[in-house]
Design a binder for these strands. Sequence first.
DNA 1: TTGTATGCGTTATCAT
DNA 2: ATGATAACGCATACAA
Lengths: 337, 337
Amino acid sequence: MVTIKDISKACGYSVSTVSKALNNSPEIGERTKELIRKTASEMGYLPNAAARLLKTNRSNNIGVLFVDEMQSGLRHDYFSAVLNSLKEGAESLGYDITFISHNIGNVPMTYYEHCKYRNCDGVIIACVDFNDPGVIELINSEIPVVTIDHIFNDSTAILSDNLKGAEALVNHIYEFGHRKIAFIHGENTSVTQRRLAGFYKTCQKLGIEIPDYYIKEARYHDPRSSGLATRELLGLKDPPTCIMYPDDFSFIGGMNEIEKHGLSIPDDISVVGYDGIYLSQVLRPRLTTYRQNTEELGRKAAENLVEAIENKKTYIPKQIWVEGELLVGDSIKRIEF
Amino acid sequence: MVTIKDISKACGYSVSTVSKALNNSPEIGERTKELIRKTASEMGYLPNAAARLLKTNRSNNIGVLFVDEMQSGLRHDYFSAVLNSLKEGAESLGYDITFISHNIGNVPMTYYEHCKYRNCDGVIIACVDFNDPGVIELINSEIPVVTIDHIFNDSTAILSDNLKGAEALVNHIYEFGHRKIAFIHGENTSVTQRRLAGFYKTCQKLGIEIPDYYIKEARYHDPRSSGLATRELLGLKDPPTCIMYPDDFSFIGGMNEIEKHGLSIPDDISVVGYDGIYLSQVLRPRLTTYRQNTEELGRKAAENLVEAIENKKTYIPKQIWVEGELLVGDSIKRIEF
DNA sequence: TTGTATGCGTTATCAT
DNA sequence: ATGATAACGCATACAA
């Protein structure tokens, strides 16, 4: 491994001069810098992140906490998409990412301890149980934190605009003539609450009243529970003409149930999803859905965390809402009313 | 931050004694260890991974190279599942993982350089273009490497047994009475080659001849190309009675095409997928498919890499085939012939 | 059994 | 503009 010491020997300058030159210090003459940079690259020099960290207390490493209750972890379309852009955003800013967990080897660690152990400059938290004491400890620590899809006190949060999403869907459904709109929503989280708020608010504005039995709770990413809810809705004396699903993937459960009833989408019943994952766009009929902007969610999370890290003194936490977009498919029938 | 120096002061032992005690050195008396450990934990001591690394040249950090040609990156069911178990396997062995890329900030780096920069003890390579010079440089370097689903010279490879998978599917299809079996396969990779080999070998053994026009090339994870191939197959004078798809997800494209032709699965045409992702099991009819054992693939990759790292002298590279299992669904009709 | 001294590769302080 | 030196936190060879 070639170190600055080797470069120092090779070009006759002292170690400290080499270090300064490589860090582009104004103290060093342009010609000297030139020479040192050249020999460094010729010798294949690479800075040692660990040694640098030891001096500067900056690891250029971001921790990522990503554990969902369903244990599906990375196998969750929405979150793996967010993670992907998170990773790319961080990398383009010069940071690597490390997954944070609560035990490493057989040594139990809190999330906070793991972050300290790896000297993470900051952490991005997504998809976790925000009541977990370990998560709370981390958020309340001195480590800069950005949360995704959850507002925690005054730490920076990047939020998919679920209110606007539900609003856009309801408006769109309404325009197609539907008044009997059912909403199968996910388990009770802040995300769900905002979607419900957007749903009710928009219905009210449009002057349509939704009976309570049109609102069903299922679980995110779980076609089975959405299938059951669908069955209940289809069995009603006064069934809805359009069903909103917790997410595109869960819709598969509804789709099966609808087919089992001998009904066809969208002729007999209209549906919409949520998320806008790849799957939704390859199904036929194409699913009308609301695409969450996972690229921007991940990128903004990385950008804001880095900003918080690099301006620790002046950074002011903020909440950033990321809008998605309506993806118009063919799963809603235009009806008269 | 509390260091061994602080502990040293607090309990009156020297720094080196503390260090040895914390590392459970036999040199230190049991009572002393006890005391030191106790004060350390009371003071909330955490070892500093960077400092330790600087001395020991071991980072307990594994690099992961995960870039596929379709740029779908982490948004790929199969690979995100492998990654997930990779992560868990590594963590349970005391290693963290870091994504390797080819530029960090605006500094262009080769994969190898990135690994060195982060002092990765080893690297797991999956889902990349193995002709990329950067990948080749990394594999040929002194850094221990484990590849997934690709054999590269004599580095250790963890391989999903695609030959057995194709074999199992063909046998199963045959048992249901089918003789006209079409195979839509993915782009030409070693994975595809093995599946094709398994396919042909089994057909031969069973004494069925497959005309060339039953074999179509599509792309993995791309329903559109599989849809096109399906259309061609359905348009044949002598269409197949069963179609094998490159993967479960691609099957969606075939499914749409089949429905468009007014055909029904499995009554009019039988199908099988590959992968056994969650989606395949929630579709109706349930897709008959071959589940790749992603848990074991990821875990074995982590285990073997760690073994290679920790026994650098004695470790012998090997190839490990991981079998999957047939997932019997309802997408094949039993027919007379 | 415990302590002293040194160095890993880097940056920062202070001198020259 | 350049160089000598210390220090970051830890582990280890060697001394006691």
